[in-house]
Nucleic acid binder design. Sequence first.
DNA 1: TTGAAGATGAGAATGATTCCCATGAAGATT
DNA 2: AATCTTCATGGGAATCATTCTCATCTTCAA
Lengths: 135, 135
Amino acid sequence: MTSIERPASPRHTRQRAEIRQAVEEQEGFATAQEIHDRMRHDGSGVGLATVYRTLQGLAATGEVDAIRTPDGQVAYRTCSPGHHHHLICRSCGRTVEVSIPSLEAQVRALAAEQGFAEVEHALEFYGTCTECARA
Amino acid sequence: MTSIERPASPRHTRQRAEIRQAVEEQEGFATAQEIHDRMRHDGSGVGLATVYRTLQGLAATGEVDAIRTPDGQVAYRTCSPGHHHHLICRSCGRTVEVSIPSLEAQVRALAAEQGFAEVEHALEFYGTCTECARA
DNA sequence: TTGAAGATGAGAATGATTCCCATGAAGATT
DNA sequence: AATCTTCATGGGAATCATTCTCATCTTCAA
Ligand SMILES: [Mn+2]
Ligand SMILES: [Mn+2]
Ligand SMILES: [Zn+2]
Ligand SMILES: [Zn+2]
């Protein structure tokens, strides 16, 4: 039998480095297009498709977090390691990482109770931060 | 000053009735396109745009629940009233409604703690149900 | 240095959702 | 019931984020 293809470790390229840096510099979440725009504005010539591909890759390995915004777009951000969720300001994008240990426990309990396996969950909070509240 | 436009109560039309019924009959969540397909298959001549518009309206009034699937599409379902979340089977679509009182409390606490206002959250669980597990 | 496996970029293609607008119905008013 | 105003409908075009294609570079192991 042939062995199952294992994803080779990604190659180190200038583009990948630039993209990684762009995501690290930014505050809050940004979409592939927004990141690409900023890179372009800063003189980079990286292609949009490459930004999409690379961000997906980084998200797959957990190097960056990906969420789906309420309007359906995917947004990325460099986050602290480990499982956590986000409290995001709808108007300015300010993001606070939050972890809810008791929730994680209940999720496992509920899943087991219902006989569900391999349960994943995505939880994001959207609100208005103090700053934006007075405006 | 002019009064702010208030959304007039929607008119009762054959299409709206058909769509409402289609959503009620279905099990689990379905996208506008899936619902439209099924209606078409059952002899209805309702237009796709109308299905999209109507489902959005029903979701806005809370008459149906709308969620965004992991792959980005919007799916609808008739649910029991009140705030709750869903445990959804990735392969067969079977859906279980769950409510997590302690989570709701912590959300309010976290929001207040961080000074965020008008915080909303969406939480859905995706897993494999017992049935689909043995297959 | 070479070559094979990958990565890139430009533009085309996709696909869900929204828009547009001419036409058809709902419902309030005579 | 006839009329009128307003909203709803539908079908096809338009959007727009994301993915795909593929010819052309790069990386990196040998
Ligand atoms: Mn985070
Ligand atoms: Mn429900
Ligand atoms: Zn803010
Ligand atoms: Zn199942």
